[in-house]
C-alpha cells in the first residue's frame, strides 16, 4: 500500500473512499466506523476493507441489522465526543434512519440553541444500472437536502470521493455522503496529493460558452459525454459537477449561467420534486435576466427503478436525452 498522500498511479473510487476513511482515522482517534458488515466483511461493497484490522474492533464495528439504531447511536455518539462514520448499505434503507437524521441529527445544533453539534457522517450508495431493482437502486438525496440542518454531498469521481469524505468527517454538522455504486469501479489517474474538498463548492469540469449543464454523481459523466457529442456540432457546453447538494454552490451555477444564458440540469434521481427542480427554481429567480431559453431538467421518470435491463437502461438519463435537452435550450 502506498504511503498516505503519496503518488499513486491510478485511483479507484472505492479505494479513494477507503483511503479517506483510513486517513481520517489515522489523523483523529475520535473517528469511528460502524454499520452492517463494515468490519469483518469489509463492507458489502468492500469500501471498509482492511480498516478493522488496522484500527481494531472498537473503532470499526459490525452492527446488527438495525438501521434506526445505527443512525440514532451515531447522533448520541457525536453529541458525546466521537466522530462516527456510519454506513447504510443501500440508500433505499435510509427510509429506516429518518427519525435519527431528520428529527435528531438535523435539529440538535439548532434546537439546543447552538450547544454542541452532531459531527457524524452517513455514507450510503445510491443509483441504478446494476439490475438491483426497486429497493436497492434509488436516489433519495433530495429528501435529505430538503432538511435544514443536514448537509449532502455526492462525489462524481475518485478525487472528489476522497476529498468530500474527508471534509464531511471534519465537518461539525451531520453530512450525508452519497456514493453512486456504479462508480465504485471508476478509476482515474491519481493526483499528486489527495486533500479535503470544501463542502458547498462546485467544480467546472469542462468549460464552455453555449450552455451550462449542471450534474452530480454519475450524471456528471453523462453530461461530459453529451458535451463531447455537442462539441462535434459546434455547441460548447460547460459542465458543472455540483459535488455538494446541500449546501449547493449557487454562485458557481449563476456565474456559469451568466456566461452561457442556458441551463440544463442532469441527475439520476427522479426528476419530479428533485434537486434539479430546486436549482431551476433558484436560477429562474436570481438568474432570471440571464436566461435566454427554458431551463431543462433531465432525470429519471416518475416511476420506481425497474429491474429489467431493458427497462432500466431506458429509465436512466442518457447522453441522447441530455443532448436533446441542450438543443431545446438553444432553440
Amino acid at each position: 500500500m502506498p504511503a498516505r498522500g503519496a503518488v499513486m498511479a491510478e485511483l479507484r473510487y472505492l479505494r479513494a473512499v477507503n483511503q479517506a476513511l483510513d486517513d481520517a482515522m489515522a489523523a483523529d482517534p475520535s473517528v469511528v466506523l460502524f454499520g452492517e458488515d463494515v468490519g469483518e466483511a469489509g463492507g458489502s461493497f468492500g469500501v471498509t476493507r482492511g480498516l478493522r484490522d488496522r484500527y481494531g474492533p472498537g473503532r470499526v464495528r459490525d452492527t446488527p441489522i438495525s438501521e434506526a439504531t445505527i443512525a440514532g447511536a451515531a447522533v448520541g455518539a457525536a453529541l458525546s465526543g466521537l466522530k462516527p462514520v456510519i454506513e447504510i448499505m443501500f440508500m433505499d434503507f435510509t427510509t429506516l434512519v429518518m427519525d435519527a437524521m431528520v428529527n435528531q441529527a438535523a435539529k440538535a445544533h439548532f434546537m439546543f440553541g447552538g450547544q454542541g453539534s452532531v459531527p457524524m457522517v452517513l455514507r450510503t450508495p445510491h443509483g441504478g444500472g446494476l439490475g438491483a431493482g426497486p429497493q436497492h437502486s434509488q436516489c433519495l438525496e433530495a429528501w435529505f437536502a430538503h432538511v435544514p440542518g443536514l448537509k449532502v454531498v455526492c462525489p462524481a469521481d475518485p478525487v472528489s470521493a476522497y476529498g468530500l469524505l474527508r471534509a464531511a468527517i471534519d465537518d461539525p454538522d451531520p453530512v450525508i455522503v452519497v456514493e453512486n455504486k456504479a462508480l465504485y469501479a471508476m478509476k482515474v489517474e491519481a493526483p499528486e496529493r489527495l486533500e479535503a474538498i470544501p463542502i458547498g463548492k462546485a467544480s467546472i469540469v469542462r468549460p464552455g460558452r453555449d450552455v451550462s449543464i449542471v450534474a452530480y454523481g454519475a450524471a456528471v459523466k453523462t453530461a461530459r459525454d453529451a458535451a463531447e457529442r455537442l462539441a462535434s456540432d459546434g455547441v460548447e457546453a460547460e459542465v458543472i459537477d455540483l459535488r455538494s447538494l446541500q449546501p449547493w454552490d449557487e454562485a458557481a451555477v449563476l456565474a456559469s449561467l451568466s456566461g452561457t444564458h442556458r441551463l440544463v440540469i442532469v441527475h439520476e434521481a427522479v426528476e419530479a420534486f428533485g434537486v434539479g427542480g430546486e436549482i431551476a427554481a433558484r436560477m429562474a429567480d436570481i438568474g432570471f435576466d440571464e436566461l435566454d431559453g427554458p431551463i431543462v431538467r433531465v432525470g429519471a421518470p416518475f416511476m420506481p427503478v425497474p429491474f429489467s435491463r431493458a427497462l432500466e437502461s431506458a429509465y436512466q438519463p442518457s447522453v441522447e436525452r441530455v443532448v436533446a435537452a441542450v438543443r431545446r435550450t438553444l432553440e
Binding site: F288, D292, G293
Partner: peptide
Amino acid sequence: ATPLARRLARDAGVPLATLVGGGPRGRIRA
C-alpha cells in the same frame, strides 16, 4: 421574449415590439 432578451432590449432601449423573434413560437431571443 426570453428574460435575457428583455434585459438586453431594455438596456439598449430597443422596444421589444419592434423585434421579430426567431425562436419557437416567435420567441425573441438574445
